[in-house]
Each structure stands twice: as structure tokens, then as C-alpha cells.
Design a protein around this nucleic acid. Structure first.
Lengths: 220, 220
DNA sequence: AGCTAATCATACTAATCAGTCTAACAGATG
DNA sequence: CATCTGTTAGACTGATTAGTATGATTAGCT
């Protein structure tokens, strides 16, 4: 990733098509954010502004013409990144599935994020920087976690197959066990140290929940 | 926490009782590790050696007479810290309890670590530095997580009240939902953003597992 | 063609940090 | 009392970093 272009009059910018100034600014901003994203996700907040500029293929000065300082860049970046993950999860057409198929699909979608390097790195970054940037954790919780749990809670409440006494607690347990699986397997490298297939987790989780729901309904 | 002692001939060392050289060295080492522990857990690996020396009440040179460099100090420290948490969990007398009481007690013990600032900070540190120090994650997984899950798996297997098809997966789900609860509530500050009592989680988790176990046994 | 604004490479400042060096000093031992 | 070892405070080095400054170059606009 070393950049050693030495020609002083080079424009390393690829993709130069017709651009008026406003959309060029938008592209530059985008270019910076892409580079900063990769660099922050790889190196954490301690990534240097020089490294970010190099990765983005942009002069350092340009960084500072789009963002006041490192912290602002980081905040804007994480904001956008979290926004990008908001939509993963319960889509309307999923709700038409029978209960078991719905739960399986939901779990599969949640765990499919394991394969997304950006998601895994984001998790590590949010948790790792939660002392220095509590606001970042808060955005993560309120934008990603809380809505996901709320939707699952609502689904449990509305579904007569899932008559639990405390739907929110059940939703948190289900969601938490999956997120922790991602943390253990991907963030911490447990897939090498203590591997287990995601199917086994999904199957057991669904078994437990559905069996418990039956028993719970029966004992009323 | 500012240190501004200016007297050049001061020994700020409290607790000076009869000491031969070997035990004085042990005490110094201990003093350093205590200070380093607090500083690393508060500030992450980016804590400065000057700050550690100050927090330990020791000259920076003394750090380097006990440890070769920052990384060695960090590694020795985390090794000892993780060792310290190994014993939390299943004690022999717990096993004599009836199933439900056992599970409740186990969950309570696990979640009681939420109140331990060192444990919570350790979690954040292990996860946050898992890219830079994969070995640290590995020690965490193999010394803390894996044995805990193995013991719970074994308990499930041996307990006829808990006839699950995949005991290990069930153990991972139970353990994971509790660890994730700690991460969400304490590490990420969810106790302010999306609070819920630990009793609700424990109750629902036990309900689900026991109900599912009954149903599972019934359907065999 | 000529002007303007954005971007470039590069160098700089001031601060911080890991690690080393020095010289002084305290406490135990002989 | 003399010596030796461990510790101290503080200065220092070399590297890195956030952020700024500069002066050249380029692209878009009229």
C-alpha cells in the first residue's frame, strides 16, 4: 500500500469524467470517506491522518478542507457506517413466513454479517473505543441494537406461536446470543480457537425458543 | 492524579517494613503491575509509560528494570488478569443444587461480573485490541470462555432434566446471551440507553431453557 | 485565453511517546 | 564507616503525530 509517486505533476485520480464543481466536491468527500473507512477499520482510531490521506489517494491538506479535524472525520464516518447497517434485518416480506422459517431466516441474516469485514471491524471499533467515544456506543445501541430488538419483541408479541411472559427479555436473549457468537467467532478469532458451525447455533436457538413457546403455551 | 513532588530526596514509598531484597523486588513488581493494570484498563494499550510510572508511584526507569518494554509489561499483565478471572463460575458445591436453582445461581454469578470494573474494562480491552493482539484474544478464549462453556456443556449432558440434542450449542447460546448482556449494558453503556434488569434476563433465560428441555424430553 | 478555486506535494511546528542515560541518594550488609 | 545495589528525578534522543503553511499545478468556468 506504499505510495511513492514521485512525479510532481501527476494526478493519480482515476475516473475523471465530466464533473461540475459541486459533484466533484461530493466525489472527493466520498473518496476521502472510503479511504478513511478502510484505514480506521483496519487500525482503529489511532490510524494516522497521513495514512488516511495516502489510502484515500488525496493530499492531507484536502482532508482538512473537508473535515475540521480527526475527530470530526471519525464521527462523520461512523455515523454513516452505522446508518449503512441499519437496514439489515426484518424486511416486510419476511413477516409472511411461518414462525419457524421466519426465525431461521432472521438468524441467518443476522449471522451473515459475520462474513462482512466492515461489520466485524465496526463491532470491534465500537466496543474498543467505547470508553473514549461513549457517543459512538450510544449511536450504535440506539440506531442498530435497540430497533432490532424492538422489532423482534413486537414480532414475538404479535405471534400467537410465541406466547412468552417477557417478550422483550426473550428478544434480547435471542439477539444477544447471535451477536455474541459473531464477537466470539469473528472479532476474537474463535473460529480458529473454538470453532462451531453457525447452523448448530441457529438450530439449537430455534429449537429452544419454539419448544419453550409450546411448553409456555401449554402451561397457561 | 498529577504528581508534583519536587523534593529531590523523597521516598514516596509508603509501607516500608522489614524487607529483604527478594521480597522487596516482589513488592515493587506488584506495585508496578497494580499501577499498570489501572492505567491500561482505563486508557487502553495507548496508555503512556510515563502515566503508568506515575500511577504506580515509581520511576520510569524502574519499569524498565522489571520489564523489557511496554509490550512485555502488557502481556504479563493481561496474563495475570485473565488468570484472576478463571475461577469465577461453576464451583463443586453448586452442582448439588436442583437444576433450576443451579442455572439461576450460575447466571447470577456470571452477571455479577458486571459490577466488577476490572472485568468490564478487561472485556473492552480484549475485544478492542483483538486486531493488534490476537494472542490476547486467544488466551481469553482458551482460558476463560472455552472452559466455562465446556463445564456447562458437561453439566447439560449429565443432567437428565436437560435432554438437548446439541448440548454444546445450547451452552454457547446460554453463555453468549449473558456475556452479550454484559457487553451491551456495561461496556457500551446500555444500562443508560436501553436499560433492563438482569433478573428479567435471568428469569427468561431459565424459563426458556427449562421449558424447552421439558418439551424436548417429551418429544422423544 | 485567462481567471478562480480546488488540489497537489512538501515542509514545518509543537506535542507526545518509547526507551536510554546520568547522577544523586537511600538502605541494607559487612 | 564504607560499599554496593536498587531506586529516584529528570534530561535526552529519535520517531511519530495532528494540524498548518506554502507554493506549484490543474480543472472548470466565462
Amino acid at each position: 500500500m506504499a505510495r511513492s509517486l514521485r512525479k510532481p505533476t501527476a494526478r493519480p485520480n482515476a475516473l475523471v469524467v465530466a464533473h461540475d464543481s459541486t459533484e466533484r466536491a461530493r466525489d472527493k468527500r466520498e473518496q476521502i470517506m472510503q479511504g478513511a473507512l478502510r484505514t480506521f477499520l483496519s487500525n482503529g482510531y489511532s490510524a494516522s491522518m497521513d495514512a488516511i490521506a495516502a489510502e484515500a489517494g488525496v493530499a492531507k491538506q484536502t482532508l482538512y478542507s473537508y473535515f475540521n479535524n480527526k475527530e470530526d472525520l471519525f464521527a462523520a464516518l461512523m455515523d454513516r457506517l452505522l446508518e449503512h447497517f441499519v437496514d439489515a434485518g426484518m424486511t416486510p416480506e419476511l413477516r409472511t413466513l411461518p414462525t419457524q422459517a421466519f426465525l431461521r431466516k432472521l438468524a441467518q441474516i443476522t449471522l451473515s454479517q459475520m462474513d462482512d469485514w466492515e461489520y466485524v471491524s465496526m463491532l470491534r471499533l465500537v466496543i474498543g473505543e467505547s470508553a473514549r467515544f461513549p457517543q459512538l456506543s450510544e449511536v450504535y445501541l440506539t440506531r442498530l441494537v435497540s430497533p432490532g430488538i424492538a422489532k423482534l419483541t413486537h414480532y414475538i408479541k404479535m405471534n400467537e406461536d410465541l406466547a412468552f411472559g417477557d417478550p422483550e427479555a426473550v428478544a434480547r436473549i435471542m439477539h444477544g446470543s447471535l451477536i455474541n457468537f459473531i464477537i466470539a467467532q469473528e472479532v476474537l478469532g474463535g473460529k480458529h480457537t473454538m470453532p462451531i458451525s453457525r447452523e448448530r447455533i441457529i438450530n439449537s436457538l430455534i429449537d429452544i425458543v419454539l419448544f419453550a413457546a409450546q411448553q409456555s403455551a401449554q402451561s397457561r
